[in-house]
């Protein structure tokens, strides 16, 4: 029982390390959020204190709401993220099905071609992407962002989904074929429902970089009407840099939605990472 005796101090040490790092990870976010709800003097005099009845103030949020178009930015971000996500999942699953289900000439080559984008970042083609969008009149439209993010998300989605689709039983698909189902029906009604957990994992991985991206909104859609939250917050904070209440409130508004989404999906995300590596 040597391990049992040794385990108490070791567990204490483990908790100490993890707790210390959790503090490092959460402290900056915590400081921003509590100070967003304080009046200006309290922000500077006692930055680490929680907002009390005397120091509580929402003046920062009022400034953000009256000066910035944050509702519009949120709407843009939601549209771009959801439509791109839908396209990545649908097109990705279709291509993954073709690659994992059928033997055809060039199958392996096609798989490698589509996997190229996992390692080479799409940003390096920005010069030509911008020219393409200018030529097609898509600059300052959400469509431009949706197209770019769809292309960006596809390689990893196809890679992960085709791994999962190989595990779907052949008997099931063949039974469907015997019953006279078309290949499309087999895909949409038999295979897709079975790979739903994998789709959820891909969705979370695809969503976070799209929501957080600054580069493409800055280059392809910087107009006021097409700004995403990430770009909008960046511009707003740049303009209001001396108004600490407004800056802290804008940051808090940008943090909260992602945080809520993460807490909802965190189990899915962690399960996805673990399943992908264990495989």
């Amino acid at each position: 029982m040597q391990t049992a005796r040794a385990s108490l101090p070791r567990a204490a040490a483990a908790h100490a390390v993890l707790l210390a790092y959790t503090l490092i990870a959460l402290f900056p976010v915590f400081v921003i959020v509590i100070n967003a709800f304080k009046e200006r003097r309290a922000i500077f005099n006692s930055p680490l204190a929680l907002p009390g009845p005397e120091t509580f103030s929402t003046i920062g949020f009022e400034t953000v709401m009256s000066q910035g178009n944050f509702l519009l930015y949120f709407q843009n971000s939601f549209i771009v993220t959801l439509v791109s996500l839908f396209c990545v999942l649908l097109f990705g699953a279709m291509a993954a099905f073709a690659l994992s289900e059928y033997k055809f000439r060039g199958n392996l080559l096609m798989g490698l071609y589509l996997a190229l984008g996992i390692m080479i970042p799409i940003r390096l083609g920005t010069v030509a992407i911008l020219q393409l969008m200018v030529a097609t009149g898509l600059v300052n439209t959400l469509t431009a962002l949706i197209l770019v993010y769809t292309a960006q998300g596809l390689p990893l989605a196809i890679f992960i989904l085709s791994e999962f689709m190989r595990t779907v039983s052949d008997d099931l698909k063949n039974a469907g074929r015997v019953d006279g189902l078309s290949e499309y029906r087999i895909f949409f009604t038999l295979v897709l429902p079975l790979v739903r957990p994998a789709m959820a994992t891909v969705a979370v991985f695809t969503m976070i970089p799209i929501w957080n991206d600054l580069w493409f909104p800055l280059i392809l859609a910087p107009a006021e009407s097409t700004k995403t939250v990430t770009l909008g917050a960046q511009v707003f904070i740049g303009q209001f840099v001396t108004n600490w209440n407004a800056v802290l409130a804008a940051l808090t508004l940008a943090i909260i939605p992602v945080l809520v989404l993460y807490l909802i999906f965190s189990r899915q995300l962690i399960r996805g990472i673990t399943a992908g590596a264990v495989k």
């Binding site: 096609m110 984008g117 083609g125 920005t126 292309a151 078309s182």
Partner: peptide, 27 residues
């Protein structure tokens, strides 16, 4: 000809080629 293979692959390959691979090499 198994056209469904092409139909399954087409959207992904088109978007990926037009928005990612082509601009990369054009650059």
């Amino acid at each position: 000809r198994r056209w469904h293979i092409a139909v399954f692959l087409a959207p992904a390959v088109l978007v990926y080629t037009a928005i990612m691979i082509f601009p990369l090499f054009a650059t």
